[in-house]
């Protein structure tokens, strides 16, 4: 498999802060890489460098075989970029926006128009296609922006926080769209501060903080790295709590927590579902009636917390920070 994105030692300094402190990234063809990090971690800077918007102070980057420093124009022909806020012209219609982008990719008049109609169809914007974008909802704008990135069917896509500012439903719809896109074989670099989003979409995740990588792996690998897998059992009869504890003790890798009041037992384990199955069989063999059972795995939030020592996103959401443009938050973070 060839690597469609290869960056090594990327450094970008602003006056007082270092936005990127030596970042390496490798994305093989057809892979979705999630670049995960809190505000100000350097995600947008990384994407800006790879999409030729920004020159790195140090380091090299190749995108689809072209050097971002030496041949930025070749890179631009091979990439599609969709940013944090929908970069579409609100006075133009959806069709005019896509047609304009096609013309600027030099697809020619006929092909640009065809492609614009085709994409409006794919993104469920056919009806709204001839209306000015200012009449669109946030989700529609975001879809149009994403469509803009796909006009030239580029082999490499950069999506910078594609779902920031969307309501949960639009977000789930957008994820479906992105999944379909990837099925067609595009290589995708996706930045996000939503841990769930990386979990849902990315094959491979690089967690960054303060401009450098702090962890790398699949969502599963990252969760395993942190550990914290546990079985949660609720027994039907309070008399069964103690025998159940005896059974679980054989599988537990730590202390079992018992809540007599709710007849619940929580046992930390290692080994995932097979261990759960075995434990259930044992419980059954001892005649213990189980009312509820679950294997609780660590979420990426747990991963994030244990890696960075701070929670990714909750603080932003709880103080109403959503209303601000993500970029402003990021700048604030950087200038601190």
């Amino acid at each position: 498999m060839t690597n469609m994105i290869e960056a090594s030692g990327l450094v970008k300094r602003y006056k007082e802060v270092t936005a990127l402190a030596g970042l390496d990234l490798v994305v093989p063809e057809g892979v979705v890489l999630g670049l995960l990090g809190p505000n100000g971690a350097g995600k947008t800077t990384a994407v800006s460098i790879l999409s030729t918007l920004l020159e790195p102070d140090e380091g090299q980057a190749m995108v689809a075989g072209a050097d971002v420093r030496k041949d930025p124009k070749a890179v631009r022909r091979l990439i599609g970029l969709s940013g944090q806020y929908a970069a579409v012209d609100e006075h133009l219609t959806g069709f005019e926006n896509l047609d304009m982008i096609g013309r600027l990719y030099h697809l020619g008049k006929t092909k640009s128009r065809e492609r614009a109609r085709e994409l409006l169809e794919v993104f469920d914007l056919t009806e709204a296609g001839d209306r000015p974008v200012k009449t669109y909802s946030g989700g529609m704008r975001r879809r149009l922006d994403l469509a803009g990135a796909l006009v030239a069917k580029p082999p490499v896509l950069f999506l910078d926080e594609p779902s920031s500012g969307l309501d949960p439903r639009s977000r789930v719809d957008l994820w479906d769209t992105i999944r379909d896109l990837v099925k067609e074989g595009a290589t995708l670099l996706l930045t996000t501060q939503y841990l769930e989003e990386a979990d849902q979409l990315a094959d491979d995740i690089v967690v960054i903080d303060h401009g450098h990588e702090i962890a790398h792996g699949t969502a599963d690998e990252l969760k395993t790295q942190v550990g914290g897998e546990r079985i949660e059992v609720t027994v039907a009869d309070v008399m069964h709590v103690t025998p159940a504890e005896e059974v679980l003790a054989a599988f537990a890798v730590g202390d079992i927590r018992i809540d007599h009041h709710s007849r619940g037992l929580t046992a930390p384990i290692a080994g995932g579902a097979p261990v759960l199955t075995q434990a259930l069989r044992e419980l059954d063999a001892r005649g213990i009636v189980v009312q509820d059972v679950g294997l609780r795995r660590p979420t990426l939030d747990d991963v994030f917390l244990s890696l960075t020592g701070h929670v990714a996103e909750e603080e932003v959401e709880s103080n109403g920070g959503r209303s601000k443009k993500p970029k402003e938050e990021e700048l604030e973070e950087v200038s601190r």
Partner: peptide, 9 residues
């Protein structure tokens, strides 16, 4: 929008 333009060939 300038960002979009600057990412185009």
């Amino acid at each position: 929008i300038i960002d979009r333009f600057r990412s185009l060939p």
